[in-house]
Design a binder for these strands. Structure first.
Length: 427
RNA sequence: GUGGGCGUAGCCCAGAGGCUUAAGGCGCCAGGUUGUGGCCCUGGAGAUCGAGGGUUCGAAUCCCUCCGUCCACCCCA
């Protein structure tokens, strides 16, 4: 039997309400902030990610879906959203527009990983980018947007972790200090950290290994090494967040896995931290556009995983309602004469913007009613020989268990009068 | 990529070498007399016991391999 490939999943009809609501909230908050949608291809030249994400990162080293196409080009399914958008910014000359250019996207992301709950080979992200300004007000706006997005979904217990990892001026000084410090602790490092010390020293800081924790605690802190411009950038950002009353935790050990980040980095963590901690994250990437061949262009962005959001919505028992509840009708037939009318009745309802369905095959009236009941339709219309000859229908209110014989036009009026407070619970 | 747990009908699961013709619940289907759902009652369909190989007179039950899934590490969304 065929199965969905490892690390992928079908999003079934019963989960779609969550997905549609999350997407709707994402586009709604972006409209509110006047960020414009952009869609880029789901595959790009491999080189874009090699240069954008960084050769030494896990993503590039072992997580990319890369293949050669029939023309011999090296192609990679996008493992993240920011580099493609920067490519589009450069390619379409967006530096000629008022800066920063503010964009958002949503769609599938591919990483070859060992799947777990909340960690898949194909997942979906929603992200925003503000490209072309180094002003910390945009770091704050991106965080503000993210925060409003989560709040609009009703997610509780989120925490914002915040840090600055400096720029190409001050980070080398810090790395030197860090290297000097760690050279005294080489013997009590875990094997992973021994590797990190040489290859990506910043990531020494978020090792969870107990034996390394003490070493991390005594390590120099990057915030003490920020150059003056980075320091005041960070102070300004915190000022904006304070003024917006967005709470954050300063986390001097927060380091992100992609090489392009500069200055601001942040992560949003859900209430129940199990395994995969972050539900979303982002930061500033002032050198990326230049690395990709554009002119020097500072930028800041944020991305969040939709599967993880939905997991958290479900954990917190948050329902996503079907907006059509209340305007849904199930048409059932009592006999052959009625059966012949079912499609036309449904069509008339649909002409009046009422959602309508019916069943087929040889289901008994009783069985059709059962199906209508479990479909969650608040209304049922019954037709048979009697109604056909009188040009009427039976309109049944499923919640009340009452029904009346009336014209189809009158039935439509009644359904249209249904108020949201009268809606039954969706199923 | 490393280590570990688990894989029995669409879903949740019992069974731990012969008494299993693999049990139960949810869901599905049909009935409980005339054209009506949700509760209840009765009946029914649905399982190559994840796949392949091995041990044995006999395997869902033991062994091996693979696949899938979950957990930890790694890392991230």
């Amino acid at each position: 039997m065929f199965k969905a490939p490892r690390g992928t999943q079908d999003i079934l009809p019963e989960d779609q309400n969550h997905w549609r609501v999350v997407e709707a909230k994402a586009t709604e908050v972006c409209r509110l902030f006047q960020y414009k949608r952009i869609d880029t291809p789901i595959f790009e030249q491999t080189e874009l990610f090699l240069r954008g994400v960084g050769e030494g990162t896990d993503i590039v080293e072992k997580q990319m879906y890369t293949f050669e196409d029939r023309g011999g080009d090296r192609i990679t399914l996008r493992p993240e959203g920011t580099a493609p958008i920067c490519r589009a910014y450069i390619e379409h000359g967006m530096h000629n527009q008022p800066q920063p250019v503010r964009l958002y996207y949503t769609g599938p992301i591919f990483r070859y990983e060992r799947p777990q709950k909340g960690r898949m080979r194909q997942h979906h992200q929603f992200g925003v980018e503000a490209i072309g300004s180094s002003d910390p007000v945009f770091d704050a706006q991106v965080i503000d947007l993210a925060w409003r997005f989560y709040r609009s979904l009703g997610l509780k217990g989120l925490t914002l972790q915040l840090n600055s990892i400096g720029c190409s001026d001050c980070r080398p000084d810090y790395l030197a200090a860090l290297g000097y410090y760690y050279s005294d602790h080489v013997n009590n490092l875990c094997p992973d950290c021994s590797m990190r010390r040489l290859r990506s020293p910043l990531r020494l800081l978020d090792c969870k290994n107990a034996s390394c924790q003490d070493t991390v605690t005594g390590a120099p802190r990057i915030l003490d090494y920020l150059c003056q411009p980075c320091g005041s950038h960070f102070e300004e950002l915190k000022g904006y967040l304070d003024k917006r009353r967005i709470g954050y935790e300063l986390n001097p050990y927060l380091v992100r896995g992609l090489d392009y980040y500069t200055r601001t980095v942040f992560e949003i963590q859900p209430a129940e931290v199990r395994g995969q901690s972050a539900i979303g994250g982002g930061g500033r990437y002032d050198n990326l556009i230049e690395q990709l061949g554009g002119r020097p262009t500072p930028a800041v962005g944020f991305a969040t995983g939709l599967e993880r959001i939905i997991m958290n919505l479900q954990n917190q028992g948050i329902r996503s309602e079907d907006v059509w509840v209340g305007r849904k009708v199930f048409v059932v037939y009592a006999d052959e004469a009625g059966k012949r009318e079912v499609l036309a009745i449904a069509a008339t309802l649909q002409d009046n913007n009422i959602s309508a369905t019916f069943t087929s095959g040889d289901y008994s009236l009783k069985s059709q009613m059962r199906q209508a009941g479990s479909s969650g339709s608040p209304w049922v219309i019954v037709v048979g020989q009697d109604e056909v000859s009188k040009d009427s229908v039976v309109l049944r209110n499923m919640a009340k268990g009452t029904q009346e014989e009336t014209s189809l036009g009158n039935a439509i009026k009644q359904i249209g009068r249904q108020r949201p407070s009268d809606w039954p619970v969706d199923r």
